[in-house]
């Protein structure tokens, strides 16, 4: 899976540098921005998982930047953590009301910074997992497989899974499926690695490689395929 990017916006070079090192130690990729005016261009250029934003900057305050991000439908889901030189009630209230997830008081304590960033990134991954692709598999009388929400399974092979979705996925992207299909087969959610993503007239057909399946789990899938086949035939 590609390394997630964390955008840090601060006009203070020392704070940017400190944030850079802590983010690197956490295993994420820091993207540093001194001038908040370039925030939207930066968000367009890189996929960002979290924004760390200084509250007090000349020209454009952190609150202005936060409002600007929250106005953009494409980016308003990205969690934002504010950096603030003072933790007065007004400051905290302002940031939370506009949609900041949390705040960190300056001077930045690297341990606190690391703990908060780490927690938000983990929560974020869980949210993505819950919200993204929900393989709500339901077998109706005709044994058709229907998937609600975002995608529908086209086929399931021993090692591959192909589904139809309204979203494109980058080749090489790996994610975990929460499909009920796997739950029913008592297979621990396998990691799915995108092999190809082809545009169709209604969306995208995405072919994934199922990783890390044991021989017993493969056997279950073979049996499942056999069952589907026989039900369709009858």
């Amino acid at each position: 899976m590609s390394v997630k990017n964390i955008l840090v916006i601060d006009d203070n070079k020392n704070d940017l540098l400190m944030a850079k090192f802590v983010i690197k130690r956490l295993g994420y990729n820091p993207i540093l921005l001194e001038n908040p005016k370039h925030v939207i261009d930066t968000l367009k250029a890189y996929p960002i998982s979290l924004i760390v934003l200084d509250y007090e900057m000349p020209g454009m305050t952190g609150l202005d930047v936060l409002k600007k991000i929250k106005k953009e439908q494409v980016f308003n889901h990205i969690p934002v953590v504010m950096l603030t030189g003072n933790s007065t009630d007004t400051t905290v209230k302002n940031t939370v009301m506009v949609g900041a997830k949390d705040y960190i008081v300056k001077p930045i304590d690297p341990t606190i910074f690391e703990t908060k960033i780490s927690k938000i990134m983990k929560d974020n991954i869980q949210t993505e997992k819950n919200e993204w692709i929900e393989y709500e598999v339901q077998k109706n009388k005709n044994t058709e497989i229907k998937i609600y929400n975002y995608s529908s399974i086209i086929s399931i092979g021993e090692l591959t899974l192909t589904f139809h979705t309204n979203q494109d996925y980058p080749v090489g992207f790996t994610f975990f499926s929460d499909s009920k299909l796997f739950e029913e087969l008592e297979i621990k959610n396998p990691a799915l690695k995108v092999e190809s993503s082809t545009q169709t007239h209604t969306g995208f057909a995405v072919q994934c490689l199922m990783l890390g399946l044991s021989e017993a789990e493969l056997k279950k899938i073979r049996l499942y395929q056999k069952l589907l086949h026989s039900q369709k035939a009858s």
Binding site: D15, E56, P58, G85, P107
Partner: peptide, 16 residues
């Protein structure tokens, strides 16, 4: 006003 902003920046760096 600009002096206050510079003090704010130096406050953060020195505290760190």
């Amino acid at each position: 006003k600009s002096i206050a902003h510079l003090a704010h920046k130096l406050k953060s760096s020195s505290g760190q």
